[in-house]
């Protein structure tokens, strides 16, 4: 067959397919993975330097045991976003957020929608509604105070549904858990662990070990490093 004719036929076929798929699939021949996601800073300089930041339109999972700097990381992420006049939502899995700590971390509470949940189902349903509603810069699910057995009962399909809901939106969904739950639905998975503390009479600083378990955007040169969180 003539190469030119073949090329023309393929172009016509592609145009027909794109027309038939219409609005349902806007760019059927564009590889999703080749799109470079926009990233936003976490507000923690060493973390941003290594990971590049949090990808928009994707799930970021941050997990670790208690006293590993999870809450501080969460507050930094929210404070950074509200500092840029973005609207954030905090889905508080066990009604554990302390507004005074938020203010201490420079979080603008007027730009924060706080949803106090008391059950895992409420947190999942609320997150779903927030993601469907759209318009939030960061949606943070704090599930750190919930029982692990409950958390393990969340089907993987739920996380994939959240991923699909925000895929082409500028929202960043951050899931805070005591151990990794989101698995492959997350674009970035960070593990936090406390390495040591610096005390005078009060706690001055905390050395945190951060491990990048998954990063779809970049392959970091080092996957594990230590940084200090001070007052």
């Amino acid at each position: 067959m003539d190469l030119g004719l073949f090329f023309m036929q393929s172009v016509v076929l592609r145009a027909r397919l794109e027309s038939a798929l219409g609005e349902r699939i806007p760019s059927p021949f564009t590889d999703l993975d080749t799109r470079i996601p926009e990233i936003v800073p976490t507000g923690i300089v060493p973390v941003d330097a290594l990971t590049g930041g949090l990808p928009r339109g994707a799930i970021t999972e941050i997990f670790g045991p208690p006293s590993s700097g999870r809450t501080r990381a969460m507050l930094s992420i929210l404070a950074e976003a509200t500092g840029r006049d973005e609207v954030c939502a905090l889905v508080d899995g066990n009604d554990a957020f302390d507004p005074a700590s938020g203010i201490a971390a420079d979080l603008d509470l007027k730009r924060l929608l706080w949803v106090r949940c008391h059950k895992l189902e409420q947190a999942l349903k609320t997150t779903d509604l927030l993601l469907q509603g759209g318009g939030f810069g960061r949606v943070v699910m704090d599930l750190t105070d919930l029982s692990l057995s409950y958390l393990r009962s969340v089907p993987l399909a739920s996380w994939f549904r959240f991923q699909r809901a925000i895929e082409k939106t500028p929202t960043v969904l951050v899931v805070m858990t005591p151990e990794s739950m989101v698995k492959s639905a997350a674009a970035l998975v960070l593990r936090l662990e406390m390495r040591g503390t610096d005390w005078s009479t009060l706690l001055n600083a905390m050395d945190v070990n951060l491990e990048i378990l998954r990063s779809r955007r970049t392959r970091p040169s080092i996957s594990k490093f230590e940084f200090r969180i001070s007052k």
Partner: peptide, 15 residues
């Protein structure tokens, strides 16, 4: 959301 968690559990916190 208010129908899910209750009206008193959703909003903007104010110290």
């Amino acid at each position: 959301i208010a129908a899910v968690v209750g009206e008193e559990n959703v909003g903007s916190p104010e110290t």
